[in-house]
């Protein structure tokens, strides 16, 4: 009883295949109500597929669970009436105006005063000047805001936002996130997928998915701590050459360049120390112990093979 009240999403072992290819594998997740839950992962990792299973648009091949307390297999109608889903691709009507799109949504949900509701949303979105403009002619940032407005219009309890800020400029992205926080402040649960690391930091909790598998989840702090990654920040000369050499050494699990510095990480502190010891003496290099970033953690996670053990061929990004 209490669990149902507290937990918005509770799914276990979700698996989805397309023509034999596994898109999502044995995925379980719990999202508490009122949280902003970040769903991270690279392209093609199964974020969209998972979100579609949550709102009843795809039937899982295996696994079960509930969304807002309703079964994701059998009670999709109830889920649809209380979930706002913002698709990855803009999916409002290009040839309807902003107002007409919002009124259409309001009417579909049987809201008592569709005109009033649409008008109120337009004011909330700051779209007063563009009410009669065709949705297809809006700029990318405005389209995203309108889409967010459309899926929050019927007062859902849960928002599923699929890469809502992809391709949007930084300022629009910040405003968008402010709006998401405002909505969460009103009690909504928000599941938002993204591949921007900075956005992960704005979530209460995150989950990371790669090639269909959920690799880690929790608060940003927990995720970093759980990785037990030890990271050094190296600055100095000849970093490109150094990166190549370090990556080949035992005990170094990941080497990644970050601007003018290099992040060198390993899961086993002693092994890492041993591996880098010869290079620490170099006068042209400055070694600093540092906290691993989320990106370090994720890149390292992706580098592991399926059994969860560290990958023999060490990951090295650009």
């Amino acid at each position: 009883m209490n669990a149902v009240a507290d937990i918005a999403i509770d799914v276990h072992g979700l698996t989805k295949r397309f023509n034999g290819l596994v898109a999502v594998h044995d995925l379980s997740m719990q999202v508490r109500r009122g949280l902003i839950y970040g769903f991270l992962g690279p392209n093609g990792s199964g974020k969209t597929t998972t979100i579609r299973m949550l709102c009843g648009l795809l039937t899982p091949d295996e696994g079960e669970g509930t969304c807002l307390g309703y079964d994701i297999r059998t009670e999709t109608d109830k889920i649809k009436s209380q979930v706002g889903y913002m698709t990855q691709r803009f999916s409002l009507y290009d040839d309807l105006s902003v107002v007409e799109n919002l009124e259409f949504v309001a009417r579909l949900y049987g809201m008592p005063d569709p005109r009033g509701a649409a008008q109120a949303m337009i004011e909330r979105l700051g779209l007063q000047q563009r009410g009669t403009q065709l949705a297809g002619t809006l700029s990318g940032g405005w389209k995203q805001r309108l889409a967010l407005g459309a899926c929050t219009l019927p007062n859902p309890q849960l928002l599923l936002l699929d890469e809502p800020t992809a391709g949007v400029d930084p300022r629009a992205r910040r405003e968008f996130w402010n709006e998401i926080h405002a909505l969460a402040g009103e009690g909504l649960t928000v599941l938002v997928s993204t591949h921007y690391m900075d956005e992960a930091e704005r979530c209460h909790e995150i989950a990371y998915i790669a090639t269909g598998e959920l690799l880690t989840h929790g608060t940003v702090h927990d995720v970093i701590a759980d990785s037990r990654l030890v990271t050094y920040n190296v600055t100095g000369d000849g970093l490109a050459k150094l990166a190549g050499e370090l990556a080949a050494r035992k005990g170094v699990d990941m080497v990644a360049p970050f601007g003018a510095s290099l992040h060198v990480s390993g899961r086993d502190a002693a092994a890492l120390e041993a591996a880098i010891a010869p290079y620490r003496k170099s006068k042209s290099l400055r070694w600093e112990h540092s906290e691993p970033s989320l990106e370090d953690v994720f890149i390292e996670l992706m580098g592991r093979d399926r059994s969860g053990k560290p990958d023999r061929t060490k990951t090295k990004t650009q």
Binding site: L57, K80, T87, R89, S91, L92, V105, L108, A150
Partner: peptide, 13 residues
């Protein structure tokens, strides 16, 4: 083809 079906299907109709 326009992608509007996905949103339509996610609504209670």
């Amino acid at each position: 083809e326009r992608g509007t079906m996905e949103s339509l299907l996610s609504m209670p109709i």
